[in-house]
Structures are given as C-alpha cells and as structure tokens.
Write a protein that binds this DNA or RNA. Structure first.
Lengths: 225, 225
DNA sequence: TTTATAATATGATAATTGTCATGTTTTATT
DNA sequence: AATAAAACATGACAATTATCATATTATAAA
C-alpha cells in the first residue's frame, strides 16, 4: 500500500501541512480502497468517523427530501478531502455522500487525525482556510438559488464544471453527470433541466455526444440572463 | 473602555479560547464603538481588516444582485463574531454587512489576531468549529431554497428567529425585521412575503402588533408543507 | 400639525417552473 | 440478439411565484 509521506495527492489538500512524523503515523492506520460508482459512502444522519482523501474519482454531497428529491450541495473531486466538516464538529453528517464514478480513496480514522488538528496549528489553519472557502462557495450558491433563474443556474453549473473539473481531449466535460444530477445541482425538476439543456443545444451553446456535454460557446453561456 | 479579559461577551464566541496574555494584548488595540441602524459595516468586495465582536444589536450579511435584490445569507447577533471568514481567507468579503439595529461592537484588527490563529491551536480549533457550524447551516439553507416553498421557508424563518434570537416579554420576536428583510431572507419578492404573512395571520398562526410579529401557534407553523 | 416618504397591503396578470402523461432512445441484462 | 430497465425527451397543463398597479397605512421630516 502507498505511503502518505510520498503520496502526491496530499499536495492538493490540507494534509500537506502535516509533519513527516504525523504523516507516517497516519499512513500506518489509513485504509486505502476502491468505491464503486453509485455507492453511498456515508448517509445523512450518520456519524462519519474519519476523513476520506480522494485519490481518484468524484462524489456528490447531497440531501434527500421527503418527496424524493436529492439536492446536491457540493461535489468532491480528486485531491480533495471528504468529510472534513464531520471531523471538526462532533455532530453527525447532514449530508449524504455518493460516488459518481468509481473512486479510489484513503480513509483516515478520526481518532488518528483529530489530535493533529488540535496540536498542529499549521494543519488546522489550512483546514480552516479550506472551510472558509467552502463557506464562501455555499453563500454564493444560496444567493444564486434565490436570485437567478433555472436557465442561469444551469449555465453557471456547466461553466463551473468546465473550469473546476476540466475537460476530456475531445472537449467534453470530464465529469459525466446524468440529467437528473444536473437537476439536483441546480435545484429544479429533471424535466426542466432536460428542457433547458435541449434549449442550450438548439442555441448552439453546447453540443452533446451521447450523454457527454461539450461547451461550444462559453461566452454565450456567461451572457445568459 | 472595557477590557477583553473581563468582557462577558467573549464567553459566547471563540475569543474565550485566547489566553489571558493574548486577551490583554488584543484589548489594547481594539476599538469599541457604536454603529447606527442601517449603517453598512463593510461592503461586498471590500477587504475586511479585522473581526467585530458584537456586544449588542444585530446585523445582516447579504449580497446585492444587479436587479436590486439583496439576499440575506446570515444574521449575526450579540455574542457572535462578524468577519470571521475574512479573517481566515485573504480574499475580500463576498458579502455586505449592514446593521439592523443600533449595535455596539469591538473591532479587533486582523494583524493583531491572525498570529493567535496560527499559534494558539485551541483558538483556531474553536474558530474551526464555528465555521463548520456555519457551513452546515449554509448547506441546510441551500437545500431549503431548492426543495421548499416560500410558505414553508417563511414559516421556518419565523421559527428560527423565535428559537435562536428570542422573544420580548410580550411574546413578540425580539428581532424586528421589515417585510422586505423577511423577503430577502426567504429569497422571494417583498409582495410575496407580505402575502404569506397576511395568510399566516388569517390562519391564526401569528399575530402582529404594529410591525412586531408574535408566533401564536408554533406547532402549526412547523406543520406547514 | 402638515407634508412627504417609506412600509405595508392586496388585486390582476404574466412569467417561471413543476407535474403528469407518453414516447423515444440508450444502456444493461439475459 | 432479444428483452427489460433506465435515462432522455417533449407536450399539455397546473401550481407557484414575480411583476405591476394602486391603495392604505405608518413613520419621519419640515
């Protein structure tokens, strides 16, 4: 099994601020494994007893409502940590985590890393910065949900996925989502998301190759009001 | 001027985790003053160069849109810290802070407190917990905005204000908000907020004494779907 | 007090979005 | 390859919410 000290992935998250000794210790207690697409990593209301360092793949953090809708609040991709908040607050998770592709993760038990959080100020400052960033993003989402139309939100979601998660060699978005996933990010009905995407296609803003989406006119998407 | 070491307010926020020495140092560089109702404390895009410890009063954190709407993301009340996030991230504020009543605050310059954040793990762990809590709340708001009706969100807002900010001796909500403020919290048009409140009144769920709102049937409000 | 200004209120109507029905295509399974 | 099951697509209609118009109150200013 790989060692945390030598793992490149940690460069992308707060684990980089741990000392060599801390990393060696964590390396010895971590478990590294694969998660199949569609697997629920943890459920809403569950106590998450550690953090997942995402080495590959992508997952969604979402919340189910009584009527069966599933609002996606955040996506966690390769390089990021999953379950950071539950690490800090002793409360149970308010969100469900589900793998959107096959993932490769390392699980670090809470007991092992919580001490570092309390003793290594550089590490905790790093986690703090991360959390501050997440909070800013969450605030922006609230404002978007309140002030923008489904059409605008969907356009912005496409741009965000394009910019933050990248594209394949053929120009399609590297993160493959179902229409339902898009609806759940934007906070609308699946049919509405489908309709708007069809509209974008008609307007030449995007094109599709099967389920894959390619942004054809990013400036056009940005201009949507 | 009061001394931080002896201030009772700090018990309610992360400042309680500072050492006596740290508090004395901060006490010497803080400025304590009053902010009139309606004053903009800091604007969107502005660099906030410190934190405000709210000794009395209440303010809103909001974001303006092009069409003149102002989405309220969070309210900061007596005992809490305002500007925590800007303390951590070097980015400018994404939100505007505006006093909703006359406020009494202490301003602690960033330069003075940032070192404590990096050196005092207990303090930074506390700030971290606070931020984790804010993040959880923000996530919940996103989900509510996506999944619930204006009627439900307004009912929940009333309950939240009742439970978190308290009531006056006569039973009215202690935080006095305009109908527009309610609309901006819920993320709807002012007219819609007014209509729903009128409806609640007709149904006997709330009563009003001038601008003041009194919850008459909290269970009824909770039951709204 | 009078006047002006802002906040609250409510109707009428339009725009957006959701829901249900139904058909087509894609993908998975036998 | 045949079948079943998902996912995608689109029309028709209903529900929710926004917008505009216009009163009516409150509140502040002269």
């Amino acid at each position: 099994m790989g060692k945390c000290e030598q793992c490149i992935i940690k460069q992308f998250n707060s684990l980089k601020s741990l000392t060599k000794d801390e990393l060696v210790r964590i390396s010895n207690c971590k478990t590294s494994y694969t998660i199949k697409k569609g697997t629920v990593i943890f459920e809403e209301g569950e106590a998450v007893n550690g953090v997942y360092c995402v080495k590959d793949g992508i997952c969604k953090l979402s919340k189910l409502s009584e009527n069966g809708k599933d609002q996606i609040v955040k996506m966690v991709v390769k390089g990021q940590l999953l379950g950071q908040r539950s690490l800090v607050s002793d409360e149970n998770s308010n969100l469900q985590a589900t793998a959107l592709n096959d993932m490769e993760v390392c699980f670090i038990p809470k007991s092992e890393i919580i001490a570092d959080l309390q003793k290594n100020p550089k590490f905790s400052y790093d986690v703090l910065k991360d959390m501050a960033h997440d909070l800013k993003e969450a605030d922006d989402i609230i404002v978007n949900m309140a002030q923008k139309s489904v059409r605008q939100r969907l356009a912005e979601t496409l741009i965000h996925i394009h910019n933050s998660f990248g594209i394949n060699p053929d120009g399609t978005l590297s993160v493959l989502l179902s229409r339902e996933d898009f609806a759940n990010i934007v906070g609308t009905a699946t049919e509405s998301a489908i309709r708007v995407l069809s509209q974008f296609k008609k307007e030449g803003l995007i094109s599709t190759i099967g389920k894959q989406i390619k942004i054809e006119n990013i400036e056009g998407l940005k201009r949507i009001e």
